[in-house]
């Protein structure tokens, strides 16, 4: 038996994502298998066109794979409806974007409350939790400010608070320092490091080596396949061996899926 601690939070098997560009089919992801355990700190790297954005979209449930299996905390995502995907994004995933993506008209407290609103959390509790999240990122004194009254670093902290507020399974940070100067970027990374130390699972998409160094594990993509994986998680390096090591009994049907979905 594998201890619950080691059970993968996120599990991808032979994930293929194709796009139709004109008449040509582009395989953005060409059979990606990957396990990420709870409290892992993973950097996904790769040149543009390597499929890392697509991988991030799939992991973030903004997109569903063309084929293959994706399970998030044991729930199979591929077959989910739009509404179910929305709920997964709402509760299980915290997005941090390169461009912050805060709502300009709303004050930051409201911005942080937003996932809770969509999650149907009652007003009182929602306010309380949003305030807690803002306290956590050190913006307790700015709650009534609009995003444009804050610096870039502060805005990204608001975005982190918004990502955190529903206590998601994963924080998915897409180039979180891309729009920040080095010093502010370092502050943000320090904050992510702290979150990781506090038990949070973090997936970081970046093309900066020094940013990736914050992570414990680096996955490099090229042409839609995993080129290398420093693989902190046991057995994740090769799909075949890892299927065995995870244990088919633990995640029923995965072995069969993996065996059945042979890449073309």
């Amino acid at each position: 038996m594998i201890k619950p601690m080691n059970r993968p939070t996120l599990l991808l098997r032979d994930v293929v994502k194709t796009y139709l560009v004109g008449t040509e089919t582009v395989r953005a992801l060409d059979g990606v298998s990957l396990d990420i355990a709870r409290n892992e700190y993973v950097a996904i790297m790769g040149p543009s066109g390597s499929g890392k954005s697509t991988l991030m979209n799939v992991i973030g449930c903004l997109d569903v794979p063309t084929s293959g299996t994706y399970e998030l905390e044991g729930e199979r995502v591929a077959a989910m409806s739009q509404a179910q995907l929305a709920e997964i994004r709402n509760r299980r995933i915290g997005f941090v974007f390169q461009t912050f993506n805060l709502l300009a008209r709303a004050d930051i407290l409201h911005n942080v409350e937003l996932p809770l609103i969509y999650g149907g959390v009652a007003r009182q509790e929602r306010r309380h939790r949003a305030e807690q999240a803002l306290v956590r990122v050190g913006l307790a004194d700015r709650m009534k400010h609009k995003p444009n009254e804050l610096s870039g670093g502060q805005r990204q902290r608001v975005a982190i608070a918004r990502a955190l507020v529903f206590e998601p399974s994963i924080i998915l940070a897409d180039e979180p320092t891309g729009n920040l100067d080095t010093k502010t970027g370092d502050e943000i990374m320090a904050m992510l490091d702290d979150l990781h130390d506090g038990g949070q699972t973090i997936i970081l998409v970046t093309h900066e080596e020094y940013i990736a160094e914050h992570a414990q594990r680096t996955i490099r993509l090229r042409d839609g396949v995993i080129e290398s994986d420093t693989g902190a998680y046991a057995g994740a390096a090769s799909p075949a061996s890892e299927t065995a090591s995870v244990g088919a009994g633990e995640v029923p049907g995965v072995a069969a899926m993996a065996a059945g979905a042979t890449p073309a």
């Binding site: 903004l62 509404a83 929305a86 709920e87 994004r89 997005f95 993506n101 805060l102 709502l103 969509y118």
Partner: peptide
């Protein structure tokens, strides 16, 4: 459009 994208990313359903 972008706001809609953000809202969807953080959990807005089509219905909302």
């Amino acid at each position: 459009t972008r706001e809609i994208g953000v809202r969807k990313a953080i959990g807005a359903t089509q219905r909302s």
